[in-house]
Amino acid sequence: MHIAEGYLPPLHAVAWTVVAAPFVVHGARAVVRQVRDEPETKLLLGAAGAFSFVLSALKIPSVTGSSSHPTGTGLGAVLFRPPVMALLGTIVLMFQALLLAHGGITTLGANAFSMAIVGPWMAYGVYRLVKRLGGGLTPAVFLAASLADLATYCMTSVQLALAYPDPASGVLGSVVKFGSIFAITQIPLAVSEGLLTVLIVRLLVKVSPAELIRLGVLRRPVEA
């Protein structure tokens, strides 16, 4: 989902930056508020950021014959609500843009929008929906994390299609073209991300149920 440096036309680069910036600023304030109001969840917040750090560094082969990476943003979005991940995801992207020449500064806005904003909101929406429909924690977390992962890559496909519409079939044709590169490759990875997020949440339920109760993820104390 990293659009490479200089690959979005200046107008698109500026537009996505303008769209993403308020979410990231709001996210920064959400992080500050979270740390101030519930300092006992600070370490868990760091762990959610670290999870995204690890997962977005892992390029995993997929059945399509190409490789891609998960995003790890679903966990933090479910635990701390999406705004927090807008900041944490953007920090991950900045690290990769500046040190790894992976993604870029001109495309940071677009990449942040797909990975740090669309993904986390998708995760949160799916999580709430599954819970409301009476689903348990495990299916809610699995679907949230894997659909967030997929949504991020679909968003990237749309962003590239808007910048490079197909001469014959237009933006829509181009969405299909880029989608076939990103979205299909991403399906098994999205499943992996869902599974890994479920694994982390299972471990969290065991070691820090108090924090999960405080964050509203768990209702009542569970017996270990």
Binding site: A4, G65, S66
Partner: peptide
């Protein structure tokens, strides 16, 4: 893989 598992980001580029 026919393409040696190149990164999807690079393929899009």
């Amino acid at each position: 893989s026919a393409t040696g598992f190149g990164g999807a980001d690079g393929i899009a580029a």
